[in-house]
């Protein structure tokens, strides 16, 4: 059990929690919180892999920054989409908004 696997373990914990929440949550906001957990785990695993193996360290840290930027863009867009869905359906529960067309 080396420290690389320990850091990967933390990333895996975030992955598992995020997937669990993504399936189990019933509102779009709850699913957004779960996706942020998933992205955090991905960044952690990438930096750990770059730091503790011969891989390029700069590449790992910059990939993690890229993930943070993508997460910010995704959160912005999801906020706008949530507002549009709320205006259109009056609710953000996934059971209510399951119709494609009516």
């Amino acid at each position: 059990m080396n420290s690389l696997f320990l850091f990967h373990l933390a990333g895996l914990a975030l992955l598992g929690l995020g997937l669990f929440g993504l399936v189990q949550r019933k509102t779009l906001v709850g699913m957004l919180i779960s996706v942020e957990l998933l992205l955090n785990g991905a960044g952690l695993s990438i930096v750990a892999s770059a730091k503790l193996t011969p891989a390029d360290d700069v590449l790992g840290q910059l990939s993690s920054l890229l993930i943070m930027g993508l997460a910010a863009a995704e959160a912005t867009l999801v906020l706008a989409i949530i507002l549009v869905v709320l205006r259109r359906f009056g609710s953000v529960e996934t059971d209510t908004i399951a119709t494609l067309r009516d």
């Binding site: 957004l32 910010a72 906020l79 949530i82 507002l83 709320l86 953000v92």
Partner: peptide, 11 residues
């Protein structure tokens, strides 16, 4: 951002 999403959708 997420806090805004929660506050704006709160039933």
């Amino acid at each position: 951002l997420i806090f805004f999403a929660i506050m704006l959708t709160r039933p």
